[in-house]
Amino acid sequence: MTKLLDGRVILVTGAAAGVGRGVAVAMAEAGAIVGIGVRRPENAVDVADEVAAAGGTPVLLRCDVTDGAQSAAAIAELMATYGRLDALVHNAVSNRSSEPTDFENASLELWEEHASVTVRATWRLAVQAYPHLKASRGALLLMTSPAGIEGSAPLPFYSAVKASQRGFVRALAREWGPDGIRVNSVAPLAISPALENLQATDPERVKRIESLVPLGRLGDPRTDIGPPSVFLCSDEARYVTGQTLVVSGGRFTSL
């Protein structure tokens, strides 16, 4: 039986853990050759194993997205090996993305940590992928966040940079539509490494968060966030562009 992404070559940034890892494995389940973009490939062998076990072809790539040479090399390696790039999923975020931010006193250095990964790297990755996505009539998918829609009080920097991705998606969808490239984003509410830590230290708080979700639980990166992401990278979404799909178990209904 043909799978949705059979033979498609997809690069996922920030694929070492959390949503990125889940999305990478979901892409593998759908038959993709998955470029696993991580800062330290030597620490992500288990992700490659999981991708292979799920039926995909893993390609571990050193890809610190704040380093344009690294992201260019990662894309070049996929092109050299497979001759095509069908989708790029930019999921990487700053390591400090889940830290509450004292907006009124926070430094420009902290802002730069957020902006370099989520704003500048979004632009740079898109530019680097453009000729290949144009050739494949492929897709650019950004993993944004509900925080980028609601404006989170404890995460104001994260909210702003994630919101900027939504403006980016809408505008670039119009700019690249004539080239046949689709540009979309997913705003997931899912279990993350930060939430896993919170579960260990403050399980009651996690329960309170879960109680706000109509479906009663936080999303699983692989089984809940992965399939909608696969859809948006597949031909099934051939007429979908410029959109943000909120995948939050119903937590955010007014966005």
């Binding site: 704003v119 979004t122 632009w123 980028g148 829609i149 404006g151 909210s159 702003a160 940079v161 994630k162 919101a163 900027s164 991705q165 939504r166 403006g167 980016f168 809408r170 505008a171």
Partner: peptide
Amino acid sequence: SAVEGVRV
């Protein structure tokens, strides 16, 4: 991108 970032 800037406008949406500033707005949120």
